[in-house]
């Protein structure tokens, strides 16, 4: 019923949503969520290709790694955001302008 194109479509929509979130939103936490959306879009692609095209397990292993690494990255990212908030008392991306000359 649902072919490869459906899954790739969902992956593409997630990817585009993630990119849009990162461009449009100014909150750092929202940007981190956008990154997660992109990663999930890629993971859906992997599983879809693995089911419909290659029929091997590589495409299943890859998303598992993506999930683990995304968790680690989110942990580090949030820790840095908290530190940034404690110093600057804002999580607005436009406030991060100390390093421009």
């Amino acid at each position: 019923m649902f072919g490869l194109a459906w899954y790739l479509g969902i992956g593409f929509v997630l990817f585009c949503t993630g990119i849009t979130v990162m461009i449009a939103r100014k909150s750092i936490v929202a940007i981190l969520i956008g990154i997660e959306l992109i990663l999930n879009g890629a993971a859906i692609n992997f599983v879809a290709y693995s089911k419909f095209v290659t029929q091997d397990l590589d495409g299943h292993i890859f998303p598992l790694f993506i999930i683990i690494v995304a968790a680690a990255e989110a942990a580090v990212g949030l820790a840095i955001v908290i530190r940034f908030y404690q110093i600057r008392e804002t999580i607005h991306i436009d406030e991060a302008t100390q390093l421009q000359s």
């Binding site: 890629a42 692609n45 290709y49 590589d58 990212g77």
Partner: peptide, 24 residues
């Protein structure tokens, strides 16, 4: 650190999306 995380996360995501299509 914050700028590095944000750029790094975005590019890693885009790279993964590319890898998924290469795999396909």
């Amino acid at each position: 650190g914050l700028k590095y995380v944000l750029y790094g996360g975005i590019t890693a995501g885009v790279m993964l999306y590319g890898i998924s299509h290469i795999y396909g």
